[in-house]
């Protein structure tokens, strides 16, 4: 399940779109310079593999639920971070557009949460370090499990952040954070375990495939870009946690920010004066039904709102049916 469009505000969605677009452009530039078309086919097929492997839902003992293999880390292990990141972009875009899992505006957030952290943070700083330090399959196992958990937790942390900044939930922040992190810790452990098993299987048959991507030289520019974003993420996270702990009663501040009174009242007065004008001019019996304005203004607005909504929808539907018919005739 990914961030949906309905859960982000335009500002949050926009910021993460820019960040993800920048990372995508940088990764593509790095790949263009490396000029290795040999892995293009591998990228496509492995991304398809991640999709297909999600059909293999295995049961998790004792819980009754099921899990599947983790995407970002597995791709990084076989492709290196930049290619894995681009593959994740393609996977997330297909999921958003064809399976409604995600959305147009939330795509930037999803790419950042599920692409950036596993590919550029968890893989190079956790998986590589651990698998280099511990020899053989043990290193792969612990590297994959811990990197998978870390990647998912960082992503979940940002889901909380993005939802909170968008002013969507009234859930106290601490609770929301705890809930999300706990769930993702469990998912990460299971995904990491399955990923480790798959990688170990391949390692036992074709050990050469894994070492290839590790030795590839990383581009300096990419490293800088990643460092900047990691630092920014850390700072926002730190600031946010500080803020959250200093205001334990939740998201009051963000509600104020989103539903600031000044912002709502201004447009409301305009249509009201406009409708008053229309009333005076066109309505045969203006103010007949709701004479006692002070008491029933709310009710009047409600009735008008419901009637208006139904009419607007009816017009839209009628137009739609008209065009559908006309289209069908052609």
């Amino acid at each position: 399940m990914h961030m949906a469009d309905a859960l982000v505000s335009p500002a949050v969605g926009g910021v993460f779109w820019v960040v993800s677009a920048y990372l995508t452009a940088k990764s593509s530039a790095v790949l263009k310079k490396s000029d290795d078309t040999g892995k293009t086919a591998l990228m496509g097929v492995l991304a398809a593999f991640v999709f297909a492997s999600q059909m293999i839902n295995f049961s998790i003992p004792g819980t009754g639920s099921s899990g599947h293999i983790g995407g970002g880390l597995l791709l990084s292990i076989f492709l290196g971070p930049e290619r894995a990141f681009l593959s994740m972009v393609s996977i997330l875009a297909v999921q958003a557009f064809f399976f409604a899992d995600g959305g147009l505006l939330a795509l930037g957030c999803n790419i950042f949460n599920m692409g950036f952290f596993p590919c550029f943070i968890a893989y190079p700083f956790i998986y590589i370090k651990l698998s280099e330090r511990i020899d053989g399959t043990k290193g792969i196992f612990w590297g994959a499990v811990i990197a998978s958990i870390a990647g998912l937790i960082m992503g979940a942390f940002f889901v909380v952040l993005q939802t909170a900044f968008s002013g969507i939930t009234s859930l106290p922040l601490n609770m929301f954070m705890l809930l999300m992190l706990l769930i993702h810790f469990a998912i990460g452990a299971v995904e990491g375990f399955a990923t480790a098993m798959a990688v170990i299987y391949v390692y036992s048959k074709m050990p050469g495939v894994l070492t290839e991507s590790k030795t590839e030289n990383r581009h300096k520019e990419m490293k800088r870009a990643v460092a900047v974003f990691a630092l920014l993420a850390l700072m926002t996270g730190g600031l946010f946690s500080f803020y959250a702990s200093s205001s334990p009663d939740g998201l009051e501040w963000s509600i104020e920010g989103v539903a600031g009174t000044a912002e709502i009242e201004a447009p409301r007065s305009l249509p009201h004066s406009f409708s008053a004008l229309i009333h005076e001019r066109f309505a045969p019996l203006p103010d007949y039904a709701f004479k006692n304005k002070a008491a029933s203004e709310n009710m009047g607005t409600t009735v008008s709102g419901v009637v208006g909504s139904i009419i607007t929808l009816a017009i839209a539907l009628a137009l739609g049916m008209f065009f559908r018919k006309r289209n069908g005739r052609q």
Binding site: A41, L42, G44, V45, L46, A48, F49, A52, S53, I56, N57, F58, S59, I60, P61, G67, I69, F78, V190, F193, A194, A196, M197, A198, I200, Y201, V202, K205, M206, V209
Partner: peptide, 23 residues
């Protein structure tokens, strides 16, 4: 049954096939 324990043995061969297919 497909469980966490044997998920690797199912995904692994598929992964190998993918690698050779991509080549």
């Amino acid at each position: 049954k497909i469980t966490v324990a044997n998920a690797g043995n199912i995904c692994g061969p598929l992964l190998l096939r993918c690698l050779s297919r991509s080549e």
